[in-house]
């Protein structure tokens, strides 16, 4: 061990009582971590900020489906965003008619039969299929 290392160790030993004070900070971090891990209520951001009546109606339908039907369902969508989220996003992006057409197209593809055609979201373990015009 070099002289500099020995000196550093001695100085740190002298200050070791002082650095215990940081434990309070660690305790706060731990409390924060476990408090924030409590179950969060699902907040559907995409159903907010509607620019016209059509969007408002579709957002209402989306919220009704999510809260009363999807919450009781045994099946899970294979895609991210899910078909209902895709639907509301498509309506907001392309309008009611084209949005609905894109949603019906998505519903016919939601069967998990062609996983190789999509990119995979490894974190969610779902196939990626965002709303696009293609």
């Amino acid at each position: 061990m070099t002289l500099k290392q020995t000196l550093c160790t001695i100085i740190l030993c002298l200050f070791v009582n002082k650095i215990y004070a940081q434990d309070v900070n660690e305790l706060q971090l731990l409390s924060k971590k476990f408090s924030s891990a409590k179950k969060q209520k699902t907040d559907y951001e995409i159903a907010r900020e509607n620019r016209n009546e059509a969007q408002l109606i579709f957002s209402g339908l989306f919220l009704f489906y999510k809260n009363f039907l999807s919450s009781q369902d045994s099946q899970k969508c294979t895609f991210h965003p899910s078909c209902s989220e895709y639907g509301i996003l498509a309506v907001k992006q392309f309008g009611a008619i084209k949005g609905m057409a894109l949603t019906f197209d998505r519903l016919t593809r939601c069967n998990g039969l062609s996983p190789t055609k999509y990119k995979i979201d490894f974190e969610r373990k779902l196939l990626l299929d965002p709303v696009s015009n293609e």
């Binding site: 305790l27 409390s31 476990f34 409590k38 039907l69 919450s71 009781q72 369902d73 045994s74 099946q75």
Partner: peptide, 30 residues
Amino acid sequence: RYYVGGFTRAKKGAVDKIEMERQRILVELL
């Protein structure tokens, strides 16, 4: 679909509830 979904989610909900209560206990301890 919804009958099976109901009892599957009931089991998962109970597991989540236990987990949530445990989390609350840990936060109380901290």
